[in-house]
Every structure is written in structure tokens, then in C-alpha cells.
Design a binder for these strands. Structure first.
Lengths: 207, 207
DNA sequence: TAGATTGTTAATCGATTAACAATC
DNA sequence: TAGATTGTTAATCGATTAACAATC
């Protein structure tokens, strides 16, 4: 979860935002854009966008701006999503099921290749392109398929134990939907999605 | 989405993290904690925790630390989650369905009171405690139930139009699961959940 | 050429951390 | 009392913004 060399985490965190906006622009037929236009769309200053990009090279042309498809491809390369990452989903409840069915992963660099659960009633059922597997086979599957990324959709009580198993087997990035903070080694990256936390962040401002 | 008076957004954003950890500590039987202990758990410095809390008052005791239940209740009050907020879910696909079924909302200050979709095949079906309603009734429902918060689980193409309708009807906080940046007035708060963006933020660091 | 926009530097702004007096 | 931990101040650190020369 560290980033010892050069580029600040907060900059890396904005690249996917730029990538998403550029993808949308391309779909809408824009071939050229500018830091100003992109910033307006995203509510980010044009200076910040130029500064962020300058960490990685020069992608624009004075007087003109950026070629949308070129910048898009450069960002994909930087973020390493110019390939397809295999992922496992652990937990086949409502949320795991939604993740297994989600169509949006493939176009953006990811694919669910395995879904796991402990519940014998769920094991063997079909979820999208996957048949739910027993969690006993988790480590073997991860090793055999070179999986580095997992999405964790198990109850809070089980999350730490599952994370430990994922990490031992070779997973290095975890998207954690369980509402707890995981304890992980420094070389493992964790992102948290807890809808309640996002909601609580907004209720503060409601009158 | 602005916070003109005093307290930085980034501080508000950490309060739900503290709240969640304290809830867990209470469940585990801890009655007292310290900024040091809390910081260790969360990977945050003790100084930052004390500084953050100092924006809102004095909640601890020198030499002793914090009474877990007391700090918990204070944070709930500050975040205004010492009550129950009614919410609507728009979109009854896999994700909307998972949100409608999610059991974790009520204990933390929220309740799904309405689920909406355009699809006649989905309207009338039961999702957890709710029967899916036709989106035609969205505005009336929001007004009649005083709903201020919505979760948006519709396709990207539909998201902006639905957001506009929600806002006109009185919604002031939107948890947006659609993978686009919404254009909204300054008095409307938006939080974004896009699993792919979280994943892309991690692939940068994978070797 | 005139207008526009980049990439970069320097200045500003804000957030985090270190340190410590107060005090339980 | 001795030890511990708070709340707060001042110092440090880092991120954002403003401004502009370079140049398409």
C-alpha cells in the first residue's frame, strides 16, 4: 500500500478519473480536448490536470491540446490497464452476484474468472460466466491462474481471514466491500467500498 | 458539494472511518481507547485523530483516553446519523437489487424506502422490503416521503437525466454507482462508487 | 501573424506531524 | 506521585494554483 518512488498516490488516484472522462469523450466523437475542457467536466483545475500529466511525460501540443485517443492510450499504459487482469470474487451473496454479473469490467481491463463461497447451496450455481466454487479451492485456483486481484464480498466477520488466505496465495490487490479495515502487509494494496461510509460523509452536510 | 464554513472536507471524510472502528471496538467489548490505539488499527497517526476531533470539541480525558461509547455517540451526532434517513434506489438491476437487499443500512442510520425502475418486467416485483415502483412516480414519492438521499444504480446513459429529476424533487445527496461524473448544483452532494476506478488505482502498483 | 494551450516554475495554500504543557 | 494521554501550538511537509515562456 506504499508508493516509495516519485509519484504521489493522490495523482495516481486521479488518473482513472481522467481515463473515464476521456473514454466518454471519445465515444461522443471528440478527437481533441484541452486541460481546460477536461477540467470543466470534472470540476478540477486545468493546472492540476497538466501538472498531474507532467509526472509521466508530455502528451499534448501547445496551442492545440490533447489528442483524445492518444492520451487515453497513454493513461491505459501508465495504469497498466492496456491488458486484461483476471480477478476472483469471494462471496456469492447479493453483492458477489452483482459483481459476477457486472458487464462493465471487460471493457476497462478486468475479468472475473472465479467466484467462491462457503455455502454448499451456492457452490455449483451459475453466476454470469462463472460457476460458484467451494472456497476450499481458493488458493489452488489463484496460483494456477496467476490471479493478483480479488474482490471481497463476504461478511465482515470473515473478511480478515479470507484476506489472509488471498495474500498467502499471491493476491496483491484487494477491493474490499466488507465494512472493516483490513490488516495487510505493505506490499498489498487495498481499496475500500463501503456505501454506508459514503452516505455518512454526505449526511454531515444535510440540513 | 461545497463546505464553506470551517471544517475541511477531508476531516469529515475520516469521521465515518473512526465511527466504524469504534463500533467494532464496542462490539469487541472495549470500553476505553486512545488516539494511539485507534490510529494503529486504522493506519492513521494519533496526532491526526486528535486534531480531527478537536474541530468538534473535547471528547477525551488526559491520561485515560476516550470512552468508546461516548465518542461513538458524539460522532453519530456530528455526522447526523443519530437518526434514520429514508433513501430511494433508482435502478433495479443486479446492483440495485443488492442495495435493496442490503441489511447493513439500518444499523448505521439509513433505510431504503423506495426502489424504482423503468422496466415493466421489474415494476411490481419484490426486492427485500420494497416493491419496485415505476419511475414515473419518482418525484411524487420523494416529495411525499421527504427523501433527501438517493442511490443511483442505472446505466451510465440514464444517470444524468435521473439525477436531474432527483434534484428537482428535493434530493440533496446522491450515491452514484454509474460510471460517469454528474453535473450538479453546488448544494447537492455526490459520492461516486465505481469499482473499476478503484481497481485501476491499484493496477498501477502491480508489477 | 495572432490566438491558444502546453509544460514548468515559483508562490500560495492547506494538511500533517512533532512536541509539549496541562492534567487526569 | 509517576505514568499516560489529551488538546493545541508551531514547524514541516506536500499539494494546488497562478503565471508565463515556449511554441504549435
Amino acid at each position: 500500500m506504499a508508493s516509495p518512488p516519485g509519484i504521489p498516490d493522490i495523482v495516481i488516484g486521479r488518473l482513472p478519473i481522467y481515463l473515464r472522462a476521456l473514454t466518454q469523450m471519445l465515444q461522443q466523437g471528440h478527437t481533441i480536448t484541452s486541460s481546460h475542457e477536461l477540467g470543466q467536466r470534472l470540476g478540477i483545475s486545468s493546472a492540476q490536470i497538466r501538472k498531474d500529466l507532467s509526472h509521466f511525460g508530455e502528451f499534448g501540443k501547445q496551442g492545440t491540446g490533447y489528442q483524445v485517443d492518444h492520451l487515453l492510450n497513454q493513461l491505459k499504459g501508465i495504469l497498466q490497464v492496456d491488458r486484461e487482469w483476471p480477478m476472483v470474487v469471494v462471496g456469492a451473496g447479493d453483492l458477489g452476484r452483482a459483481l459476477a454479473h457486472y458487464r462493465g469490467f471487460v471493457a476497462r481491463g478486468f475479468r472475473v474468472v472465479g467466484v467462491f463461497d462457503t455455502d454448499p447451496a451456492k457452490v455449483g450455481t451459475v453466476q454470469g460466466e462463472n460457476t460458484v466454487r467451494d472456497i476450499d479451492g481458493l488458493e489452488d485456483f489463484i496460483r494456477q491462474n496467476g490471479v493478483r486481484i480479488a474482490m471481497l464480498a463476504v461478511p465482515a466477520e470473515a473478511a480478515q481471514a479470507v484476506a489472509d488466505r488471498l495474500i498467502v496465495a499471491g493476491v496483491r490487490a484487494i477491493l474490499n466491500y466488507a465494512p472493516i479495515t483490513l490488516a495487510t502487509p505493505a506490499n498489498v494494496h487495498v481499496q475500500y467500498i463501503d456505501p454506508v461510509m459514503h452516505l455518512q460523509r454526505m449526511t454531515y452536510y444535510l440540513d
